[in-house]
């Protein structure tokens, strides 16, 4: 069953459809939350919260956000970063503008494309992977990464940019 059909069933309060959706996306959501939070119990809380939001407001995902998988990946990451930020009283990510991610659906739903991206990400030199992961999964600014690793700020920026260019090339290949 396609995501759209599943969400339609979820909108009609079909618990079996929601269970299917859980089976399809819980690992993705949990893995991203765990990557950020590094605590299984917190990661599970985020996963449950994110997926319960689908149950309670399935329309919010369908109408505006494109692919459910891509949306969940981004929401799981942002929610997890917010958990960390709430402790440090920083601006929650959900207040930020996210303009028109209209190509998310195509990008994330095509499995072969994702395989290409996965291969590219795995092959990224560690000096490129590390700052991108610190920025994305730990929510660190370029300056903070520079301070933490002792790498010049310009080098941090270049490495993150280069890593993202590699991802984009894989998507466009």
């Amino acid at each position: 069953m396609e995501d759209a059909e599943l969400l339609q069933a979820v909108a009609e309060q079909d618990q079996t459809a929601m269970a299917t959706l859980f089976d399809r996306y819980s690992r993705l959501v949990y893995s991203i939350a765990l990557r950020v939070l590094r605590e299984p119990s917190l990661a599970e809380d985020v996963m449950q919260e994110v997926l319960l939001q689908v149950w309670r407001q399935p329309g919010g995902f369908v109408s505006q956000r494109g692919s459910l998988g891509a949306w969940l990946a981004v929401v799981a990451r942002n929610r997890s970063i917010d958990v960390i930020r709430r402790r440090s009283h920083l601006t929650p990510l959900e207040e930020m503008v996210i303009p028109e991610p209209r190509n998310l659906q195509r990008a994330v739903e095509q499995n072969h494309l994702m395989d290409q991206v996965r291969t590219v990400v795995e092959k990224l030199p560690s000096e490129q992977q590390a700052p991108l992961q610190m920025a994305y999964f730990e929510g660190l600014s370029h300056t903070e990464i520079s301070e933490r690793t002792g790498t010049p700020l310009g080098t941090v920026k270049t490495r993150i940019r280069t890593a993202l260019i590699a991802v984009r090339r894989a998507l466009e290949a």
Binding site: A19, F22, D23, S26, P40, E44, Q48, N103, L104, V108
Partner: peptide
């Protein structure tokens, strides 16, 4: 928008971890 696609793709291709034992039941219970 393009950067967001890149980042979402980066996130979605990270290695997956198994959800904790009983997580599915806890979710269905909620």
């Amino acid at each position: 928008g393009r950067i967001q696609v890149d980042l979402a793709s980066f996130a979605a291709t990270q290695p997956l971890s198994d959800v904790p034992a009983g997580a599915r039941e806890r979710f269905l219970s909620k």
